[in-house]
Design a protein around this nucleic acid. Structure first.
Lengths: 167, 167
DNA sequence: CCTATCTAGTTCAACTTTCAAGAAAAGGTC
DNA sequence: GACCTTTTCTTGAAAGTTGAACTAGATAGG
């Protein structure tokens, strides 16, 4: 039920406002921190690094553009630009999809794989220091469950739902 | 203790990887969702909206640039550009600080206040639907505590620490 | 087939963010 | 006061993102 249907806004309680504010601050700071760490150590923003990680875990280190965009929760437009940039840096190359002439595979190059191998330890350290070393095991469990719920709530639901990242 | 000092990387466990992945997906989806909601309903990205909210809650609806940047966890450069844009839209104006001739106050205009009043219900609804309506009260408590810990861990510590958002 | 529609991916322009550099005022020291 | 450092804020260019428009190939119905 939304405000629009009733005319009565359910404002956030003081406690909810505090939680929301803490959420915004923590996520902003963490994103910024990791962007900076990876820009320094791997020469690319965090999200680009995430794309390479996905490719490294995919069969034959390659993935269709749309599937990669869907996994990373970004639009295809954004992915096109990102892959173009990563291609220029030599970490990824494009390849025509054999079974669908419209399709492209993004392929992690050997250089890309080597770069990941070299920068992964530093990145894992950064993530540990920022998150896992600061939380109790119970808090990690809770966080995982909470984030799964939030992510599920923001996924498009029906088969005919308008998928934001396909625009 | 970091990998760099010992040579042994403490990789993430499978469960930690799942939590990390869920965190990245949820935060990406939520940020994206709210950016889109506010771009549609208020004509600006989420972070700009947050700046106006801060101003609306400040005494006399104005705040020094540096303080606003610090609260919003963004760099002063980014804030300068953002305020320039909000000024062009008429929601904010700049004002010289009387006590420090280097300083500027960002002031929420009446138009800005009115815009906030009109768009706040829709935004609160969006936040509720995405987060508070999906979590149990216990989960909200846990989330708040977790986010406070993470934010605190990413704040610069010493007085001489290099403050990212002051660059 | 033929046509209409859908899907995959790219491109362009407008906008936002980042980083490095710089102008101007404040503060500290002698 | 003269000098040096720090703080405040802005600027400009490069990089990244967005949303709409577009091309080309796949798909479905007649």
């Amino acid at each position: 039920m939304t405000t629009a249907s009733t005319g009565a806004t359910r404002w956030l309680t003081d406690e909810e406002q505090r939680v929301w504010r803490a959420y915004l601050q923590a996520t902003t700071l963490l994103e910024d921190h990791l962007d900076r760490q990876l820009q320094r150590d791997a020469g690319m923003p965090h999200i680009y690094y995430g794309l390479l990680v996905q490719l490294s875990q995919a069969p034959r280190r390659r993935m269709r553009m749309t599937e990669l965009a869907r996994n990373a929760k970004i639009t295809r437009s954004r992915l096109s630009h990102a892959i173009a940039r990563l291609e220029k840096s030599g970490w990824v190359r494009r390849e025509d999809c054999p079974s669908d002439k419209r399709g492209q595979n993004a392929v992690l190059t050997d250089d890309g794989q080597a770069m990941l191998r070299d920068s992964a330890p530093g990145h894992v350290d950064a993530v540990r220091q920022a998150m896992f070393d600061r939380l109790t095991p119970e808090q990690v469990d809770h966080l995982g469950e909470i984030m799964r719920v939030l992510a599920a709530g923001l996924e498009p639901e029906g088969p005919d739902a308008d998928l934001p990242w396909l625009r």
